[in-house]
Design a protein around this nucleic acid. Structure first.
Length: 810
DNA sequence: GAGCATCGGGG
DNA sequence: GTGTACGATGCTC
């Protein structure tokens, strides 16, 4: 019979000494099924003299009652580091035989190399069969009998079609009893609530009865009953995907720990296997047949880079991606309410559900990105959700290697990896700006500089220093002169070129169809992948590590940016600043059109896919020095564009341990200078705020300083102000722990600062010390901005007779 | 300042 | 499970 189904999860089992592959998923008509394949055999690759084959055939060993042996050898024509090579596929009886037998075979003298012995069996299956998870497959199969929650079919043939519409997603979140504030102890403290959320589905389970009007609250008799019910809910709902926020390391392990305590079997898997928590390395929790997606993992590792937030809490991430926050409840009081069986618990049930709801909506938002990575990389959702950028590059290369007959290179051993970690690469070129105030700035940058260099110069480990092209396509670097073949396309450079051109085509379509979310996600995925290649080449544990390739890439980048700078100078522009892939030009007597024409001329001379792009014009800009005195600052400037938007880079304005008033003053002064070019007004404003501070007209909330307590307060050698504040909190009986943000205010008085620290609720607006704030918060934030106009900040802020104590501060 | 240790998210 | 994250930050010597 023919079944069309979307494979979501893949696993394998050993039955009677043979491995069987199981694909779980949903059919087009919506039925959950399992497809079984017992015709796929584990193998790895060997490069050797033909004389070795007799010895390889006989390799055999025993391990825990299993015979591990070579079952077959097949000769293949392939490529090693892009050179034609004869190799052998060595098949074994079991997947676990591979690592054992490869070690034995590597020791045979006629064997020069063993490869592809650590590509997980199920991943090997997907690559070789060219199956893309999440996408519709047409399968010729027969139904078979096997213990399972869903029907099982035996595969005859598989063909790839389209992707799964509307997967059933169930979001979960737990609340636990936690009397000691932050401390988490799965063995001692019970789960008190479990929330579920999906489209048209809400439920909160709990096991103490409180007053509520919410129909979604379901009361159970005990924690054990609640966990049993948790299992039932999942079995009734039949989700394709279960999701949570940090559920890999918190919710699911917690549930498993509690279930174990009550000796409950959590056989959630469609094959009746138990919820699996893998504690080694980064904790992973899985259920066979149902894909567990931890939203936090993907956000932190992949999407987080593109977010403004610097913490990846559910609250911060939801606020940025969804424009919605968690409910504001006092978590420290939850344990007490639970003990007293207070009706306040209803507020916590609502809070619990909201967390599950936010997680659900976040998954809906990021799923298109995940799906695009699945399609590009070809690995299951579970794997893609937990991968890093370097793993994306690596697995994409592994898939491409299989398609273009390249042997997958081995991971470095510990020693080689340590060695590689000492390899240093000369980085980007920075043209330091002269501190100052400037008018009419044009900014240009190279579009995807490193990827386009790799593609255009054919940079790849197999094209490096070829025999045929010495003296051509050559680059001088810190570790020698390298050249790259001009006749044959490289493996890595070919992959990058393909990624760049595919993305360019998608961007063309997006110009017409702006709202296509999947296309947008695909464009993003291709961009992330291409941009990760340079880092991958220099990543010490990469299979395709190539320090010469990485070194050549930055060397060419420096060469190109120099070329642009020289050409700009020749055309009469003043180069203000340049960093890595961008140049800032002063227009002076030139027009914008002149600047655009200049870029056009540069582009005529650039090879391949490289392009210098116009970024923006800025009406005004301030470049500030980092050090005192002369010398420009790297990456510390503020610009005003033609739409009157201010772009600030590198100022500490966003630092958490600054008071609000310090940030506010810095921003306002930049505003006045850039928009009104009025230094006197900025000075007057500063004087006014300082007078307000001295008159205690600034509200207390604006002078609170936030600093993170990084360790236990007893282990601080030097007692900084925030430690002093933490000690005050502890003395008041408040919970103090490493990692928490301490809020404090510095008050008037004699002696050390730490003796003048008070907690915000201990004082009034009259108590803070204006001079402390002026000296330690206001001045450091604006001093260098005023220095650009040759203004000594001390003159502006000084009280009579105190000038000298302020001079040169910072 | 190199080298080592811890942390993140979660209640 | 054909395994053992990773990059940033802070502390110590």
């Amino acid at each position: 019979m023919l079944i069309e189904f979307f494979p979501l999860d893949i696993t394998y089992k050993e039955v009677n000494g043979r491995p069987i592959i199981y694909l779980f998923g949903r059919t087009k008509s919506g039925e959950q099924v399992c497809i079984r394949d017992n015709n796929f055999r584990p193998y790895f690759k060997v490069v050797c003299e033909p004389e070795a084959l007799e010895k390889i055939k006989e390799v055999e060993t025993k391990k825990n009652n299993d015979v591990l042996k070579v079952t077959d050898i097949e000769e293949i024509q392939t490529n090693l580091i892009e050179k034609p090579t004869k190799a052998y596929k060595v098949f074994t009886n079991l997947p676990k035989a591979v690592p054992v037998l490869k070690s034995m075979i590597r020791n045979i003298p006629e064997v020069s190399g063993v490869y592809e012995y650590d590509i997980l069996f199920v991943r090997r299956y997907l690559i070789d069969k060219e199956i893309v998870p999440y996408s519709l497959c047409a399968i010729e199969c027969d139904q078979v009998t096997e213990k399972s929650k869903v029907p099982v079919f035996e595969v005859k043939s598989i063909k790839q079609l389209e992707e799964l519409p509307n997967p059933k997603i169930l979001s979960i979140d737990i609340e636990v009893y936690n009397p000691l504030g932050r401390h988490i102890d799965m063995d001692s403290y019970p789960i008190i609530m479990i929330a579920f959320y999906s489209k048209n589905y809400k439920k909160v389970l709990t096991w103490k009865r409180f007053k509520t009007d919410e129909k979604y609250v379901e009361f159970l008799q005990s924690e054990a009953d609640m966990i049993e019910r948790f299992k039932e809910v999942i079995e009734e709902f039949k989700p394709d995907i279960i999701t949570g926020y940090n559920s890999d390391g918190f919710d699911l392990p917690y549930i498993k720990t509690r279930a174990k305590k009550y000796k409950l079997k959590l056989d959630l898997g469609l094959d009746f296997s138990e919820l699996n928590v893998n504690q080694r390395g980064d904790t992973k929790s899985s259920i066979s047949g149902i894909v567990h997606v931890d939203v936090f993992k993907f956000i932190r590792k992949i999407l987080g880079r593109a977010l403004d937030t610097d913490v990846f809490t559910l609250d911060a991430v939801s606020a940025e991606l969804l424009g919605e926050k968690k409910h504001d409840v006092d978590m420290d009081a939850l344990a007490e309410h639970w003990d007293n069986v207070s009706d306040e618990l209803n507020t916590y049930a609502r809070y619990n559900l909201q967390d599950a709801r936010l997680t659900y909506m976040l998954l809906e938002k990021i799923l298109p990105n995940l799906i695009e990575f699945i399609k590009i990389i070809g690995l299951p959702l579970f794997d893609v959700d937990r991968m890093s950028f370097s793993q994306f590059v690596e697995w994409y290369c592994i898939k491409q290697a299989s398609l273009s007959d390249q042997i997958v290179l081995n991971k470095p051993g510990y020693y080689l990896e340590q060695q590689r970690m000492h390899d240093r690469i000369k980085g980007a070129f920075v043209y330091e700006p002269k501190p100052g105030f400037y008018d009419d700035i044009a900014v240009f940058d190279f579009r995807s500089l490193y990827p386009t260099i790799i593609a255009s110069h054919n940079i790849s480990s197999g094209t490096l220093n070829c025999d045929c092209c010495r003296g051509e396509n050559e680059i001088k670097t810190e570790r020698g002169t390298f050249w790259y073949c001009k006749k044959k396309k490289g493996f890595l450079s070919g992959i990058i070129e393909d990624l760049i051109t595919r993305r360019a085509r998608i961007k063309e379509i997006l110009k017409r169809e702006k709202a296509d979310l999947l296309l947008k996600a695909r464009s993003t995925a291709l961009k992330y992948l291409a941009n990760s290649f340079y880092g991958y080449l220099a990543f010490s544990s990469a299979r395709w590590y190539c320090i010469e390739c990485a070194e050549s890439t930055t060397a060419w980048a420096r060469q190109y940016i120099h070329k642009v700078i020289d050409a700009a100078k020749e055309k009469g522009f003043t180069v203000l600043y340049s960093d890595t892939d961008s140049v800032f030009l002063l227009l002076k007597d030139k027009s914008k059109e002149d600047a655009l024409k200049f870029a056009e001329e540069i582009n005529k001379e650039l090879p391949g896919l490289m392009e210098l792009e116009f970024e923006n014009f800025f009406k005004t800009g301030i470049f500030v020095s980092v050090k005192h005195g002369e010398g420009g600052a790297k990456k510390r400037y503020a610009l005003l564009d033609e739409k009157d938007q201010i772009k600030v880079t590198g100022f500490e304005a966003v630092r958490r341990n600054w008071s609000f008033i310090a940030k506010e003053i810095q921003q306002k002064i930049l505003n006045i200078l850039l928009r009104e070019k009025d230094v006197e007004k900025a000075k007057t404003y500063l004087k006014e705020v300082i007078n307000d501070l001295r008159d205690h007209k600034i509200p207390l909330g604006k002078v609170i300083i936030h600093t993170q307590l990084v360790k236990n307060i007893d282990s601080y050698e030097s007692k900084g102000p925030h430690v002093a504040a933490a000690m005050r909190m502890k003395n008041k009986g408040l919970d103090v722990f490493p990692g928490m943000i301490i809020k404090f205010v510095v008050t008037k008085g004699e002696g050390l600062i730490r003796d003048k620290v008070k907690l915000p609720d201990e004082l009034t607006q009259e108590d803070y010390d204006p001079e402390y704030y002026i000296k330690h918060q206001i001045i450091p934030g604006v001093e260098r901005i005023f220095a650009v106009f040759d203004i000594n900040i001390a003159d502006v802020v000084s009280k009579d007779g105190e000038q000298k104590t302020l001079a040169g501060f910072g």
